[in-house]
């Protein structure tokens, strides 16, 4: 079931690399729209934005591989 898999994923993310994550950006506030900035996708460099996923729920993870 997808929700079950989502919970597993979420637990994994929240236990990975959490050191230092005390505060968030001023702009990323509950109740406000996520900025529609267009970025290159990692996969192929094509333009991609969170607006592309409008109509779907998104778990967004801002992270780094270091």
């Amino acid at each position: 079931m997808k929700p079950h898999w989502g919970i597993v994923l979420m637990v994994m993310l929240l236990t990975l690399n959490i050191v230092g994550a005390q505060t968030s950006s001023r702009e990323l506030v509950v109740g406000q729209a996520f900025p529609d900035i267009v970025f290159p996708s990692l996969e192929d460099g094509h333009p991609l934005s969170l607006a592309h996923f409008r109509g779907r729920k998104v778990i967004l993870h801002i992270w780094a591989s270091w």
């Binding site: 979420m10 990323l28 109740g31 970025f39 290159p40 996708s41 990692l42």
Partner: peptide, 29 residues
């Protein structure tokens, strides 16, 4: 999918950071 924000246009000050975003693009958590 991964979006590449090398210039930090989002202005985040720390990572990792997890958000829930609803169907309307509104941050819910």
């Amino acid at each position: 999918p991964i979006l590449v924000d090398s210039l930090n246009l989002l202005g985040v000050s720390v990572v990792p950071l997890t958000l829930f975003i609803d169907e309307h693009g509104i941050i819910r958590a």
